[in-house]
Design a binder for these strands. Structure first.
Lengths: 299, 299
DNA sequence: TATTTATCATTACTTTAACTAATGTGACTT
DNA sequence: AAGTCACATTAGTTAAAGTAATGATAAATA
């Protein structure tokens, strides 16, 4: 039927053309430079034309090579996308979600059983990651990001309205005689890595002179909350993350003032994958759950 | 970088999906059924899902397989096109032209030297073919078709206005005393395989009762003209094909009546290749030449 | 119901394609 | 002039693809 060029040679060519170097291409392909040289030569022999101009220290594409490369790049891109998509259209098999650790522990994992009930065929693989940037990598299908909702190349769906509340354990509240914000000056403040949060809160309640920088700093807000549960001080907690500890009575909210931060947790996926099978299923479940919980809260 | 599926396995899959049969796919790929089976299995293993549902006498695609197949088909189509194009963008290397034999001998080949002069880097490979249908095959880039200009999937450019003229050698005309069309009744008529041409011509000149079916039949009009040159009878000749023999005086036109047939020679190429390098170059030369010759004729 | 047939799967083996290691080549660098 | 960098080449190895033979299954046929 069709007489297609040697496909594996095309792959070598595409990579070599992208790097304009056989040596670098070989690294990317985990083969030797000689292998790339062979493959490119085989392709050139098949096509009966030169794709590269070999200068001694530099490699450049011929006109034909340049044109072919651009088309091949698109073709391989399409192939990669079609293949990605394939993995995601079926309801069976796993979906990998990257989640910030605190959100995972305090909110996401406790709610996962509801997903398993609704979608027993679909497994969720959770990957806790600290760095947002670049966490939507090859092996990750969707992610939870914390931020302002503006990230390039992705679709982001906000989950909750979020605030920061001062919280502490009921025991501490009993014995410490905390009536007004100014009473916190004598207390240990617990910090996570969101900088200046306490300072901003004191500003909010009309105490701008206090920096609120005493007390231990935890790498993750879940650790700060854990410390608060154990009566080690007052934490400034995200309403979403702290919800279950408040519901269970392990922590109490000690003032009505809530600090708004223009940041929230977002469900994030690649722009062009938003509507495909598993990803849409997962999004519907997650956004539905958030909505349901907010309705219950407002009743 | 990207983790692409095994490319050769994709090819086997695409063919198998097209035929819905491993056996037929194997035939197309010139391998055994087992080879296709292995390749498809390897692909399914890589993707971790089934592409086919194997029933005992029938093979069908799973939903995922169907979706993947449709995308792959497009991708391979694009690849084939990009590769074809590549061969044709460069001015170097050959362009293969399929030409009906008579047109080749009488018109095309004699004019080829002008092309070589204008485009010394570009070789023309001529393939004389009798059958128009399907002559624009894999190995042929452009073709000359004879017909009404309507063929699906191709671009067709008409070359000349065409008519049929009665012609014979000057010697025969001398000795045979031919004054009016009715005098041809006593002459040997030479036929090529365009059926009913003489009959139609007699109808044109008001002699519908004569079928004009005596005389030898030649498989190609060039042979009929060759017979006419040797004084063996009167031929009904295409004005384009006979031009050089008339110019040289080997044949003379014996009546002014010209039979119109709504058919002509066309330059034909694949729809989507009309504007690429060599093909456009060749078309410009050919159409330009035709136009120049017609201008000279009209002066 | 038994037999044949068509089609894909599987296994053990062979062939071919891809890759490697070592070395060569030519031009720029120092 | 010696060193280095990057691709080419050659000969030999490894891995992928393919084959041949056989097995399994279910539909078609007798």
């Amino acid at each position: 039927m069709r007489k297609l060029p040697p496909l594996n040679a095309l792959k070598s060519f595409e990579v070599a053309a992208r790097h304009l170097s056989f040596t670098k291409a070989a690294e990317e392909l985990f083969v030797t430079q000689a292998a790339v040289s062979h493959q490119v030569k085989a392709l050139e022999d098949f096509l009966e034309l030169k794709l590269f101009i070999r200068r001694n220290r530099s490699l450049l594409l011929t006109e034909e090579g340049q044109e072919y490369y651009l088309e091949l790049r698109d073709i391989f891109e399409q192939l990669a996308q079609a293949t990605d998509k394939l993995r995601l259209v079926s309801e069976r098999g796993a979906l990998t979600v990257s989640v910030p650790p605190s959100f995972a522990i305090l909110w996401f994992v406790p709610r996962l059983s509801s997903f398993r009930e609704e979608h027993p065929d679909m497994d969720i693989r959770i990957k806790a990651v600290d760095e947002i940037s670049g966490s939507l990598t090859d092996d990750v299908d969707v992610a939870i990001y914390y931020g302002d909702g503006r990230w390039p190349g992705v679709k982001a769906y906000q989950l909750h309205e979020e605030y920061l509340w001062p919280v502490c354990s009921p025991l501490l509240l009993d014995k410490a005689n905390i009536q007004e914000p100014i009473d916190l000056f004598k207390q240990t403040l617990l910090h996570d890595e969101t900088r200046n949060a306490w300072k901003d809160w004191f500003q909010l309640v009309g105490l701008p002179q206090y920096k609120g920088d005493n007390g231990p700093v935890f790498s993750h807000s879940s650790l700060a909350l854990q410390a608060a549960v154990h009566g080690q001080g007052i934490a400034l907690a995200n309403n979403v993350l702290v919800k279950s500890e408040i519901d269970s009575g392990h922590l109490v909210r000690i003032f009505p003032q809530a600090l708004q931060r223009n940041k929230a947790f977002y469900l994030v996926c690649r722009d062009n994958q938003a509507e495909i099978g598993k990803i849409a299923t997962f999004r519907q479940w997650l956004l539905g759950l958030v909505q349901k919980e907010e309705q219950e809260f407002n009743q």
